[in-house]
Amino acid sequence: MINYNGSIQDTSNYSIENNRGFLFGDAIFETIKVNGTKILFLEEHYLRLMASMRICRMEIPMNFTMEFMEEEILKLIALQANTVSNRIRFSVFRNAEGFYHPTSNDVQFIITCSELASDSYVFSSTTYEVELFKDFHISKHLLATLKTNNKMINVVASIFAKENGFENCLLINEDKNVVEATNGTIFMKMGNQIITPPISEGCLNGIMRKQVIAIVAKMEGIEMIEKSISPFDLQKADELFISNVITGIQPITKYRKKEFTSEVAKEITSLLNALIN
């Protein structure tokens, strides 16, 4: 079941050959974790969606309030067999004909739902090895910070990781600085500092990124810093971890010949669970 423009149905019946999200990547989306009927970080997701629509010059409907977004998500959640936790994808696409130039900036939305195993963020201690993906780079511009359907670099890098026996890849920008992982924000612990790239490096303006930054800023003896990370920094780090709203915190255990601890990542996971419960 999906929610297509407020109507619960089996399918949208929208032909992909006419969908600008499919044809041109002319769409944006939010990936949201819902515990029971509690939408985690709803306000942050709503504000980012509105900002993304404005940047992409999409027409925002007058009724598209935060309350409307919440209502439409919960309408679909109510029909799910899993009452513990679900993953929501809230997609907005420009509903128009035309080629690169659309005939209208009007939008439609589709909400899909899939089951999650746990409502809490589960800390993983399994081996998680990453590598740099150097075939293509992320450009340092505003569109790179949005969750759009233009994610080919992430897709190709994910395939590269699987083909070469890695759990994930780290993406770089044109300056050869580390920007993010294929599926989340990269954080690095070096001494008493937690470092993550600033948005100006081209990384996604992540919802969980903001939560982790706020949590770390309150931790005693730890300094939160936003600055560029070079590939050479990775091998000098004490810890590396990835964050996103579905997984929470994913510790990286190995990069090339360097192995990492995960004590701070484990503590942040605990503090994150306290935040959402």
Rank of each mutant, 00 (worst) to 15 (best):
72 E>R: 06
101 H>F: 14
67 E>Y: 07
116 L>M: 08
147 K>C: 01
54 R>V: 08
73 I>V: 11
190 M>T: 09
122 V>E: 14
101 H>M: 13
44 E>F: 00
182 T>P: 04
227 K>D: 10
128 Y>T: 02
136 F>A: 15
161 A>E: 02
23 L>Q: 12
241 F>P: 03
229 I>Y: 05
248 G>K: 00
113 C>D: 04
250 Q>C: 14
158 S>I: 00
109 F>D: 09
215 I>K: 02
122 V>C: 07
252 I>D: 04
218 K>M: 15
70 E>H: 03
65 T>M: 03
115 E>W: 03
253 T>Q: 09
123 F>G: 00
1 M>D: 00
203 C>P: 01
202 G>Y: 04
183 N>D: 09
142 L>D: 04
58 M>I: 08
142 L>R: 14
193 Q>T: 01
258 K>H: 08
66 M>Q: 13
144 A>S: 15
62 M>F: 08
133 F>Q: 06
21 G>C: 10
71 E>C: 05
150 N>L: 10
139 S>V: 13
7 S>G: 01
188 M>V: 12
262 S>P: 08
22 F>H: 10
98 G>L: 11
37 T>E: 15
73 I>D: 11
88 I>W: 07
45 H>S: 03
155 V>L: 15
207 I>H: 08
199 I>C: 04
67 E>K: 06
222 I>W: 00
271 L>N: 15
154 N>V: 00
209 R>Y: 05
219 M>S: 01
234 L>M: 04
166 F>G: 03
261 T>Y: 12
131 E>T: 15
212 V>N: 03
61 P>R: 06
54 R>M: 11
135 D>N: 13
194 I>S: 03
171 L>Y: 05
105 N>F: 08
205 N>L: 11
227 K>Q: 08
212 V>A: 05
180 E>Q: 05
218 K>F: 01
220 E>Q: 11
74 L>R: 08
198 P>D: 01
254 K>L: 03
48 R>T: 05
98 G>D: 12
244 N>R: 03
237 A>P: 05
214 A>Y: 00
50 M>W: 00
122 V>N: 09
149 N>D: 11
169 C>A: 10
273 N>M: 04
153 I>T: 10
230 S>E: 10
268 I>A: 02
175 D>E: 13
257 K>R: 14
59 E>K: 10
97 E>W: 04
188 M>L: 15
16 I>N: 12
121 Y>G: 06
